Simulated assay, not measured.
Amino acid sequence: MSTDLRVAAYTYEHTEALLDGRVPIDGANATFETASLVSDIFRRTAEGHYDVAEYGLTYFLRTFDLEESPFLALPIFPNRNFRHSAVFVNTGAGIEKPQDLAGKTIGEFAMFGHDPGVWMKGIFSDEYGLRPDRSRWVIGGTNHPVPAFDWIPQPVPEGVDVRHAAEGETLGAMLESGEIDALISVDVPRSLIDGSPKIARLFPAYETVERDYYRRTGIFPAMHVVAVPRELAQQADLMASVYRAFCEAKEIAQQKYRHGAIKQHMEVVTPWFSSLFEQNRALLGEDWWPYGLGANRKVLDTFLRYHHEQGLSKSLLTSEDIIVPSLLDT
């Protein structure tokens, strides 16, 4: 008998084969849902609408401080990105290096400790000695006003100055005007894309910095996992089927690029894409977007440490605390 499953994920090229039905979940009668904003999937996950759902790492981890955490994670990482490129500065604020952020007012997208923010605050602390309590923080939307996400816990550690932007304000406009000095955001400020001279990236050569970071650490930062209710996580065969399906959908996307290299990726609209592909393949390997705990333990444990150090988790969790037990050997 098949198990009915409500599954939600953002539409990435590595989830398309699931969402369009090319890859089934064995032993399940799965219905799939997506959204134009991935945060809408997170909100509906928090409200209990799904059996299997993409969930931001910090959103997922914050539930572990509830009286009873409702979720465990499959070692599937549908969203990951290097995040030095996600730090923006006002060009008149005198910020040339990370240490210059001390004493400054920094905007952060959506909440104190969104996934890129956790990564960059952790990197700033590890590599530059800059802790979050040395700056002031303003939370909001980058290009559009964003209300407080009151459907998820919002811990703020003692001694850290955090406020939400006023109604109608955007962090991008505040950065351009100099009301805030810097910004950590998953979204790029629209005015930077439009060529404003008042906003720049903290790391202008961010690709070089991020490639060096990977060479030194082996970390390709993960932003999201796939969450399941704890009671469903007890069904080991079903969890294995879900995991295999996500892996197969990802492999279809990766194989498209491997095969495309033979014809110099003539189906891709971006010039010189083959050169970029070869650079990435040489650095990241044949499976450049790995799933499974074995390939991601250091990534996860680093994020878990950052989350605890930044006051977002009461306890220092381990990979074993958060991953579905039957998939710990993946």
Rank of each mutant, 00 (worst) to 15 (best):
L304Q: 12
I25L: 00
I193C: 04
T302P: 10
H224P: 08
L232H: 00
T31G: 07
R44C: 01
F277K: 02
D237A: 12
C247V: 13
L37Q: 15
L317F: 08
R305D: 15
T63G: 04
G285N: 10
A148H: 00
E248L: 02
P271S: 06
T15C: 05
G294C: 00
P70R: 03
V225N: 13
H49C: 01
A17I: 03
L304K: 12
V225Y: 09
A222F: 13
A253G: 11
R201F: 03
T270K: 14
D212K: 13
D194Y: 01
E158W: 06
I199Q: 06
R190K: 15
N280W: 12
L19V: 02
H224Q: 08
R131Q: 14
I193P: 01
E176G: 03
I252D: 04
R131V: 11
V23L: 05
N90I: 07
S85I: 09
V209Q: 09
G311D: 12
F42L: 04
G159H: 00
K314E: 02
V242A: 03
G140A: 11
K121Q: 14
F71I: 08
E67N: 11
E13Y: 02
L19R: 08
G195N: 01
P147D: 14
T34P: 05
M239D: 05
P229Q: 08
R163L: 02
P221G: 05
I95F: 09
V268E: 12
P145V: 06
Q310F: 05
S191C: 07
E176D: 12
R62L: 11
G172Q: 07
E248V: 09
G48D: 08
V38R: 13
A166H: 15
P147T: 06
R258G: 04
I139A: 03
T11W: 10
S313V: 08
L130W: 03
S315Q: 14
V269T: 09
Y213T: 04
W288T: 08
R216C: 00
G172N: 07
P197G: 07
